[in-house]
Each structure stands twice: as structure tokens, then as C-alpha cells.
């Protein structure tokens, strides 16, 4: 399993991690190594096996519909790199 630079660029864009062009090659090599190692799973017979998606077989608990949270604007914004008038702010987004 070998990844090309274009794939790394696509995946990095999806993950919103800038990878400088100079690092694409090395990243591709490292990730290809890991992928070819994990590809060995294809040899395991999983016919008729149901996937296990969580760490437990407990039942999903439900919460009562009550308001018991919120009203903590200061705490919500306490760590904001940039905030104004109760809002978080980011560079202008164009729709």
C-alpha cells in the first residue's frame, strides 16, 4: 500500500493540517509504511462477523429533557483566542 503525494495532500486538506510541499514525500513514505503494515488485516476472515463499534455492550442511557446547563458565557469564552461582544471571532468567512 503506497500513498502518493496527491493523496497526502488531499488527506491533509480534509484534516486541515498544512503539510509543506517539501514534507509531502517523507510523509507519504512514513504513512505508506504504516498502511502496508495494517493491510495485513485483509487476510483475516471476517465473513458474517458483526462490527464492534464501541468499547462496551451496555445500553445507551437517556437524559430527561430539563434545562440544567448553559448561561455561562464568560466560562465558554474564557479561553477564546479572540472574542467580542459575547461572540467568538474568526477571519471573515465568505459564503
Amino acid at each position: 500500500m503506497s500513498l502518493d503525494k496527491a493523496t497526502i495532500r488531499r488527506v491533509a486538506t480534509l484534516a486541515r493540517i498544512e503539510v509543506p510541499d517539501a514534507e509531502l514525500e517523507a510523509t507519504a513514505t512514513k504513512l505508506s509504511g504504516i498502511l502496508s503494515w495494517i493491510a495485513q488485516l485483509s487476510e483475516v476472515n471476517t465473513d458474517d462477523v458483526l462490527p464492534m463499534s464501541g468499547g462496551t455492550d451496555l445500553k445507551l442511557p437517556w437524559r430527561a429533557d430539563v434545562i440544567n446547563d448553559g448561561g455561562i458565557v464568560d466560562k465558554v469564552l474564557a479561553n477564546a483566542p479572540e472574542a467580542q461582544d459575547g461572540f467568538f471571532s474568526v477571519p471573515k468567512v465568505v459564503e
Binding site: R63, D65, V66, I67, N68, D69, G70, G71, I72, V73, K75, V76, L77, D85, G86, F87, F88
Partner: peptide, 26 residues
Amino acid sequence: SKSKLFSGASAEFGASPNEHVSFIDA
């Protein structure tokens, strides 16, 4: 509903910015 899908903050429309926000919603 009174509260949000996965948190206990109010789901009501029209509060001041970030008023109806829990740590989960943030």
C-alpha cells in the same frame, strides 16, 4: 423540546450570543 439534543442547555430561540451554550455545545 426544552433542552438540546445532547446537552442540558436551553434550545430556545433568540437568546443573547452564546447564552444557551454548555461546554458540550462549545
